[in-house]
Design a protein around this nucleic acid. Structure first.
Length: 306
DNA sequence: TGGCTG
DNA sequence: GCCAG
């Protein structure tokens, strides 16, 4: 077990669970990111060009990065430890359903992902489940990224825009992207030409950033909201997928017209108008941190026995 | 509103 | 879940 070296080789981040509640496990298992796997006691992921190896023991976080050594601020930034979670949770704590989810998954945080990787990941996520998405992202990284070996395991960095922009559509298809290949290629070319500055959207408002994202091939309302929430600091974004629809039908139907509920009940996907109505409800009902509410409800419902 | 890669 | 028709 040479992989599990002793903790002395790691940096420590003490967490005061009262002020900074955090659960690494819930945060990495809730399906927002596709790049982490658990090896022994450690979670391992690729962030930027670094391998990050991290574990939590009670109120302490231990981590190492490779090849570049990163400090605690890097980890704090990635896991949004700067969010005032107690305050956020008190804000979204609107009813018994969300309170149950918060209790069950306390410490779950939204991750601050890299916008470019997040963009491509959620274009790929269209009409796919989480394991399939993880596989696509891994395939893309193996094919177009850079291999880094750490603790006897191989990791691959996520390809740069130029790598995908200059790729052959057939090679993208081989990564099991299917009809998403064309969308990924087109969007990569736009990003490669730097026609859109994703990072800049961190500072602009939600509406503006969203409209810009919607201009990209493969980015509709749901994908845009995921990118805004998971990588662009737009915590009011309220992505609506099949799970969120189920949650609305199960717990929140009384907030909608009966006719509306009937319409969405039996069909597979929402029209843009229906999407908008549910998403706006989420933002109105849960407030400026609606995205956090969405994550807690989503993760909670996915763990409910059918 | 249906078709889409496997 | 997005996009073409």
């Amino acid at each position: 077990m040479c992989f599990v070296k002793n903790l002395d080789a790691s940096l420590k981040i003490p967490l005061n669970q009262l002020v900074t509640p955090f659960s690494l496990e819930h945060t990495l298992r809730c399906g927002q990111s596709f790049r982490w796997r658990k090896l022994g006691d450690w979670w391992c992921g690729v962030v930027d060009e670094k391998i990050v190896k991290i574990r939590q023991i009670a109120d302490k976080l231990w981590f190492q990065t490779f090849p570049e050594e990163m400090d605690a601020d890097f980890v704090k930034n990635y896991f949004r430890l700067d969010d005032n979670l107690p305050h956020i949770l008190s804000q979204i704590s609107r009813d018994e359903h969300i309170r149950r989810a918060i209790q069950r998954f306390s410490g779950l945080r939204i991750i601050r992902q890299q916008p470019w990787e997040c963009l491509i990941s959620y274009i790929c996520a269209t009409y796919k489940n989480i394991p399939a998405i993880k596989e696509m992202i891994l395939n893309l990284s193996k094919q177009f990224g850079t291999k880094i070996t750490f603790d006897d395991y191989d990791f691959y960095t996520f390809p740069k825009p130029t790598d995908l922009a200059n790729s052959d559509i057939e090679d993208l298809r081989k990564c099991k992207l299917g009809f998403r290949a064309k969308r990924v290629l087109k969007t990569s070319r736009i990003m490669h030409k730097e026609e859109l500055d994703l990072e800049a959207f961190r500072k602009t408002d939600y509406e503006h950033a969203r409209n810009e994202l919607l201009s990209l091939p493969g980015v509709g309302p749901k994908v845009a909201d995921c990118i805004l929430l998971f990588s662009l600091d737009k915590l009011k974004a309220f992505p609506v997928d099949v799970w969120m629809k189920r949650i609305i039908l199960k717990y929140y139907s009384r907030h909608f017209e009966p006719l509306f509920i009937e319409k969405i009940r039996n069909k597979r996907s929402l029209t843009p108008r229906e999407y908008r109505e549910i998403s706006l409800f989420g933002q109105r009902y849960f407030g400026p941190y609606a995205g956090y509410a969405q994550e807690y409800l989503f993760h909670y419902e996915r763990h409910q026995p059918k």
